[in-house]
Design a protein around this nucleic acid. Structure first.
Lengths: 341, 341
DNA sequence: TATTAACACGAAAACGTTTTTCTTAGTATA
DNA sequence: TATACTAAGAAAAACGTTTTCGTGTTAATA
């Protein structure tokens, strides 16, 4: 087992001072060409790797960014992480991932541990619990310590920071319109509780589309689902007296669960009922029939978030740049579960 | 923006030495009860948080563990990460995630950056490319520097370290048997190229099961798929002259793709053809019909990996414990795509 | 009373860097 | 010749901790 080689050892071996070694390695011109050359060659020979912890301590920055997401076993979030990771790595940063598991307490704990200085900034998406509680003291605290925060997808207006979201309302507005244009008259909505920021936005998009098309909103075909594990029953009650010819769902799982029930009852998709989901995951892509879906471009979102954060981190200017709110455009991926227009 | 408070400032304010503060905060008994009390109260008041980077530098350990996985948009890997994360957090460690994106080069780069001392140990699953190339110098290097490595799922015998795998061969052996017992006679296999360690193991399990049951192996109904994007054609050729009554697939996507084709041709599942997949993801759970699947218990695998790594990290003993190879038992989740026995 | 032990705390070194300041010799200028 | 300047490198301080080794009191013991 080889010992880690440090600048100090190089200095000793070459009989120069540590400062000389340090400068030589960083190509400072105050060190003679020959000495520099000699030191660099020796360092390479010994396979010297700078100790990043020492550098972090000295420079007061770790080049690590912390990412906190509610859940990782989730297509959308993994694509976002993927984007963050790629962008961050390209800019010389590492990504430390923490899972809040949709728990407020864990979100707080994660922030506190990470903020303990091994991290330069945060990217996060709020848990449902946090959105419900509206308790953001942990965010305020890290921001107050000068740590930049970028929120994505599940954001809150109550915190001042960079945000990056999807045009949820508009996306659903469009999708609803698409259904209307393809001839659907009675569009059911499978959504979440209103305290989930994105769920609320999406519901609004749906409502607006119906209004604009002069279609009466029917609360009986709007299903608000609290728990994904128990969505089956709530959805099946929709089918009791089937009064809809399309279903718009706020995620993949609700959509697919509804499709199964439709199939079970012998309904034809999309002839009898059309379906549109959200999140372009494996389910949408491979279900039979394949599900038309709103794609959120999570990868791009992640990239963008990382770039915004890092830009702020590397900004030397004294005056703070104003916070930005970036909206990522969704697109509709038409597949087999909808009629073409 | 509040400045970060350090031990030094506490010492100054309270007119004691930094060593006294440090000791008081860690409850050393060499500091008087009253002083300790006073210091702790003041630290709390100022919301003092130790600087973990400084601690890392001093203690030569960061309490960070690096995780490198081939792909994150993948159900199995996310469950593993989830397990790693939970176990690691419980033991006071943070998880730094890097993605190799199935690229050998990126795997090497990731290891090198992470090894640059901000990490105490590694957990990783090899990329396909690495398994094909059989080039493990980057692993040898970090191990040689005394950094413990735990490999999971996609492992190699050529490196000496802790490993944690699934009983792939046995799992598929069992699943095949299950199909045979349920009356299937001609079982097709959808698998990957042999250089993928797990693919190879799984194929072997299949072969052994057939042999033990005295069923002739038919190479025509074994499909080796290189690229998941182009599996459609290879699978459909299987159906040309359909000579099978069951399909065993080495992952979800192949299974579901085949099921779609069966459905398209009007075949009944499971009456005409039975299906078994691997990886208990959303697809298996929500496809119609629901897919019987081999569940790998990725979460448990991740937990185990983290525990093994951390145990080794915290082991003070001089003599190295021998490396262990833990096998996680799979189980078969029976659903609608197979006939019951 | 002199010696020792326990106690409570401070000083300083150390972790591995980077950076600022200081030194010395040699060279150029007036 | 005296002065200033430059180049090349050394020394030291700093980042925020932890830990080892003192050291001065006070209390207990011989």
């Amino acid at each position: 087992m080889k010992k880690k080689v440090t600048i100090k050892e190089i200095a000793r071996e070459l009989d120069v001072s540590v400062s000389t070694v340090s400068k030589a390695l960083r190509n400072r011109k105050e060190i003679g060409a020959e000495t520099t050359q000699r030191i660099q060659a020796f360092a390479k020979l010994l396979n010297y790797k700078p100790n990043s912890i020492a550098i972090s301590l000295k420079n007061k920055r770790s080049r690590n960014i912390g990412v906190i997401i509610p859940e990782i076993v989730h297509h959308f979030f993994t694509t976002v992480i993927s984007g963050i990771e790629t962008a961050a790595n390209n800019l010389g940063y590492n990504v430390i991932v923490c899972l809040s598991n949709e728990s407020f307490d864990k979100e707080v704990i994660n922030m506190e541990t990470l903020a303990g200085s091994s991290i330069d900034g945060f990217i996060l998406s709020l848990t449902k619990e946090t959105q419900k509680k509206k308790d953001f003291h942990h965010l305020l605290e890290v921001i107050d310590q000068g740590m930049p925060v970028v929120m994505f997808d599940r954001v809150t207006e109550e915190i001042n920071c960079d945000k990056i979201v999807v045009d949820d309302a508009y996306a659903v507005y469009n999708a609803t319109n698409h259904l209307i244009l393809s001839g659907c008259k009675r569009i059911a909505l499978l959504t979440t509780m209103d305290y989930v920021s994105v769920g609320k936005q999406r519901t609004m998009g749906y409502l607006n589309a119906l209004n604009d098309a002069g279609i009466q909103v029917d609360e009986n075909i709007i299903v608000r689902i609290e728990n994904i594990e128990h969505c089956e029953n709530q959805i099946s009650s929709l089918f009791e007296d089937q009064k809809f010819d399309a279903v718009l769902s706020v995620n993949e799982v609700f959509a697919v669960t509804a499709m199964r029930q439709a199939l079970n009852r012998g309904l034809k998709i999309p002839e009898d009922v059309s379906f549109i989901g959200f999140t372009n995951g494996l389910l949408s892509k491979y279900f039979y029939p394949r599900l038309t879906t709103i794609v959120q471009h999570g990868y791009k979102m992640g990239e963008k978030a990382a770039k915004i954060l890092i830009e702020r981190l590397e900004d030397e200017e004294e005056e703070e740049k104003p916070f930005i709110k970036e909206v990522i455009k969704t697109s509709l991926r038409e597949r087999e579960s909808t009629k073409s227009i």
